[in-house]
Design a protein around this nucleic acid. Structure first.
Lengths: 102, 102
DNA sequence: TAAATTGCTAAGTAATCTTTAGTATTTTAT
DNA sequence: ATAAAATACTAAAGATTACTTAGCAATTTA
């Protein structure tokens, strides 16, 4: 299982969409939507970034979320994405107040 | 220019490495390291995730950083990555205290 | 328990990435 | 100023990977 596969499955399940429906909403032809999303989710193939952008939009997560190896980072990205601009700035500023690694 | 290209160039420049040197440190054969990193940086081709992992390690950024379309999100990811586990947790918790979008 | 939905897969075709073999550009040293 | 060195860049062929097709398998629902 790849990082991308794990995150895709996580986010799709949260959305309640089937693999095929997600693919169709992301603009894939209905004849191959099911196969392609399944291949992504099983780690058989990896989509190009344009497709990642479309999937991200449908699932309401930022593109970077799919590449977060760490669960906490994935959660952070999802949280950040779902805030208003004003609130996002506060989060970024908060990280600057904290001491860096060693 | 793709998101990946922009982030790669940003992070490589900060590191002070040449395209070729970065490629070699990321494990690419020296005969093609220059061409490949250049192709990535010009948006001509996109590497697979295994290569992204190696590049991320060399440049001391998280993999997700390369896919952050928003500059502030990219900065957040870099900051988060460079904190200790304990501090990272504080950042994640901080996002939970804030009100969500609308 | 039949029907419908959802998940999954092999294999051929299509598309993309990697390597090679350089040229072009920029930087450094004299 | 300019030669040398380093760095950036590119086309094209070869190598690899993704997409489509044509289903079958498993699960869910009525």
């Amino acid at each position: 299982m790849s990082t991308f596969s794990i995150r895709l499955k996580e986010a799709r399940r949260e959305s309640g969409l089937s693999q095929e429906r997600l693919g169709i909403l992301a603009g894939i032809d209905e004849s191959s939507a099911s196969a392609r999303i399944n291949q992504y989710e099983r780690g058989k193939h990896a989509p190009d970034f344009q497709m990642v952008e479309r999937i991200a939009q449908v699932l309401n997560v930022p593109e970077a979320y799919f590449y977060a190896k760490d669960d906490d980072m994935a959660q952070l990205l999802k949280n950040y994405h779902r805030k208003r601009e004003n609130t996002r700035k506060k989060i970024l500023e908060f990280t600057l107040e904290l001491e860096s690694k060693i």
